[in-house]
Design a protein around this nucleic acid. Structure first.
Length: 492
RNA sequence: GGCCCCAUCGUCUAGCGGUUAGGACAUCGGAUUCUCAGUCCGACGGCAGGGGUUCGAUUCCCCUUGGGGCUACCA
C-alpha cells in the first residue's frame, strides 16, 4: 500500500493510538494536528490501532477511539473499517505479527540483529550493579552479541528462550531535524542494544512503529513530545533497514489545569464524555487547535474548514499547555449561539429527553421550546443548561427557594401577587403578551407602593421555584395565562 | 543517576535585536436590565534568576533554577 504512495510524493500521516483507554483530549489534539496537516497538504490521514499489547488492549476502546474521532469530524482515509470498527484489518498491529517477524528475521539474517539468551534474572542483576556503581548509562552490556554460531545452535537445541536485539551502530551521534523544535541530537552511547522481539515472539513498540510507518508510506510522524526520546531508537532501525527516514514533529503535551498529567482527576477523560456533558464538536476542535497553535495575535475563532486553510505546522509552539475548561466553555457558548434555532433545538432535544423534561415532541411542545430557547438566550453555556430554564415550563415547582420565599413572598407581597393573578385571569388569552404583563405589574407596584423588583422576584420564585430565570415577563407569557393563574391561585 | 525537551500576565498565546511588550479566557470595577447570564466600557496583571554578545536585549549564547519526558521483554 504505502510504499508505492511514498514514491508519488504524496503526504501521508497517521494517528496511532493504543486501545488501552478511552481517547482523551490529548489524543484528539494529536489526531487533529495530523488531520489538519494532511488536509492542508492534500495528503492522507491514516489511523493505525497499536494493539500489540494484548493484555491491555480492549475492543471497547477501539470503538471509543473511532467513535470519538468520528464525532469530532476527523475523518480518516485509511484505517479501521468505518462500518465496523472491530473487524480487524491490516491497520491493526495485532494483524501484522507475521510482518514484524519477517522484518526481524531480515535483520537477524543480515547480522544487524542477534539473539539474546540472557534471562530476566541476569538482566535485573546487571541493572542493579549498574545502578550501584552509578554508571553513567544503564543498559544491556552486549553479552550475547558475539556468541559463536555453535553456541547459538546449542542454545536453540536446548530450547532456550531468546529475544532479538539490534546491534547499535557506533556512530557517535544520532540527530534529526524536528518540524517543531529544530535540530535535536542524541549521543548514541546512551542507547543500548535494545530488544525488538520479546522472548514470546511478540514485537516491541519501537520496532512495530518503524515497520508500520515505513510499510504504510508515512512521510511525516507527528506525535506527542513524550516520543522524542524514542526517536533515536527508531532512526537506528530505519538506518539498519536502509529505509528512508520520515520527517518528525513532536507536539507539546497537554496537562490538566493543575499542571499535572491529564487523568481522571481532571473530570471528563474521554472526549465522548464531553459530548455527553453538552459540548459542541466545533468548540472542542477550535479550542484544541489553539492549544499549542496560533494563527496570529488577534484571531482565534476558526471553523474546521478555516483551520484546514490556515494551519501551518511551523506555528505550533514548543511549550506544554494547560487545559482550561473555562476557555472551552467560552467557545462552547459562542458556538451554541451561532446555531440556527432549528439546529439548536434538534441538538438540545436529546438532553431534554434525558432529563425527563419532555417525552414526546409534539408541534405544541416544539413551539414552546423555540420560545424558551429564545428567552434563555446566552444563559446556555453547555447544552444541558437549557434543562434548568425549561423545566419550570413543563413542571410546577416541587419546592420553593427558601430564602426567596422569606424575602420576596411576605404576606403583603403575596397579596399583591394574588391580585395580579386575578387581573391576568381577566385578560384575553390573545392579549397575554409580555408588554401587557409588564404594564400590569408596574401599575400594581405603583398602587401598592411595593417596589416592582420585589414583586417581580416574588413572582419568579412562585412560578419557577427559584431565584434565577429568564426574563420574567417573557416567562409568564410563554408559560401561558391559565398555568400562571393556576400557580398563583394554588400558592399558599 | 544518565540522556533529551521546554520557560512572556493566574491560564492560552503574539513577539522572531530598538514595541507604551499586543490579544483572548479568568478575576475585579462601572454602565445596562426584574434575578442570573449576556453585552458595552474600564482596571489589575507578565518577559524565572545570573552572566555574556551588542550602541541596544523578552528576542542570540552560556550557566543556574524550575517544569516535563524517556531511561521496560508498556505503548
Amino acid at each position: 500500500m504505502g510504499v508505492i504512495a511514498l514514491m508519488s510524493g504524496e503526504i501521508r500521516v497517521r494517528f496511532a493510538p493504543s486501545p488501552t483507554g478511552k481517547l482523551h483530549i490529548g489524543g484528539i489534539r494529536t489526531a487533529l494536528f495530523n488531520y489538519l496537516f494532511a488536509r492542508t497538504k492534500k495528503g492522507k490521514f491514516i489511523i493505525r490501532i497499536e494493539d500489540s499489547d494484548f493484555e491491555r488492549s480492549k475492543d471497547e476502546f477501539v470503538i471509543d477511539i473511532c467513535e470519538s474521532l468520528k464525532w469530532v469530524g476527523l475523518d480518516w482515509d485509511e484505517g479501521p473499517l468505518k462500518e465496523d470498527y472491530n473487524t480487524k484489518n491490516e491497520y491493526f498491529q495485532s494483524q501484522r505479527l507475521d510482518t514484524y517477524k519477517s522484518k526481524a528475521d531480515e535483520l537477524l539474517n543480515s547480522g544487524k540483529a542477534y539473539r539474546c539468551f540472557c534471562s530476566h534474572d541476569r538482566l535485573k542483576e546487571l541493572k542493579d550493579i549498574q545502578r550501584q556503581r552509578k554508571d553513567a548509562v544503564f543498559g544491556y552490556d552486549g553479552f550475547c552479541r558475539n556468541l559463536t554460531p555453535q553456541e547459538i545452535t546449542e542454545k536453540l537445541n536446548n530450547n532456550e528462550k531468546f529475544t532479538i536485539r539490534i546491534k547499535r551502530p557506533d556512530t557517535p551521534e544520532i540527530s534529526f531535524c524536528d518540524l517543531i523544535r529544530g535540530e535535536i541530537s542524541f549521543r548514541s552511547d546512551t542507547l543500548d542494544d535494545f530488544i525488538i522481539i520479546r522472548s514470546d515472539g511478540r514485537p516491541v513498540y519501537n520496532f512495530t512503529v518503524v515497520v508500520d510507518d515505513y510499510l504504510m508510506g508515512i512521510t511525516h510522524v507527528i506525535r506527542g513530545e513524550d516520543h522524542i526520546s524514542n526517536t533515536p531508537k527508531q532512526i537506528i532501525l530505519y538506518k539498519l533497514f536502509d529505509w528512508r527516514i520520515p520527517e518528525f514533529g513532536h507536539l507539546p503535551l497537554i496537562f490538566g489545569d493543575d499542571g499535572k498529567r491529564l487523568s481522571k482527576r481532571h473530570g471528563a477523560v474521554s472526549i465522548l464524555e464531553y459530548k455527553k456533558e453538552g459540548f459542541l464538536r466545533e468548540a472542542i476542535l477550535n479550542y484544541l487547535a489553539l492549544l499549542g497553535w496560533s494563527y496570529d495575535s488577534e484571531r482565534e475563532i476558526f471553523s474546521k474548514e478555516e483551520l484546514i486553510e490556515l494551519f501551518e505546522i511551523s506555528k505550533i509552539s514548543k511549550t506544554a499547555a494547560r487545559f482550561s475548561i473555562d476557555k472551552l466553555l467560552w467557545f462552547n457558548c459562542l458556538y451554541i449561539h451561532e446555531l440556527s434555532r432549528e439546529a439548536r433545538l434538534s441538538i438540545l432535544i436529546p438532553f431534554l429527553k434525558d432529563a425527563g423534561i419532555i417525552s414526546e415532541l409534539t408541534d405544541h411542545v416544539k413551539e414552546k421550546l423555540f420560545a424558551i430557547i429564545e428567552i434563555a438566550g446566552d444563559r446556555i453555556k453547555k447544552l444541558p443548561d437549557l434543562n434548568f430554564y425549561a423545566k419550570p415550563f413543563f413542571f410546577k415547582p416541587e419546592e420553593f427557594n427558601e430564602k426567596g420565599v422569606r424575602k420576596f413572598l411576605k404576606a403583603e407581597n403575596i397579596q399583591v401577587i394574588k391580585h395580579i393573578g386575578k387581573l391576568f385571569k381577566e385578560i384575553d388569552e390573545i392579549d397575554f403578551k409580555r408588554e401587557k404583563i409588564e404594564e400590569i405589574i408596574k401599575i400594581e407596584s405603583e398602587t401598592s407602593g411595593i417596589k416592582s423588583g420585589k414583586i417581580i422576584q416574588g413572582l419568579r420564585v412562585l412560578l419557577t421555584g427559584g431565584m434565577i430565570s429568564a426574563g420574567l415577563f417573557e416567562t409568564i407569557e410563554i408559560m401561558g395565562r391559565d398555568e400562571v393563574v393556576r400557580r398563583i391561585e394554588m400558592f399558599q
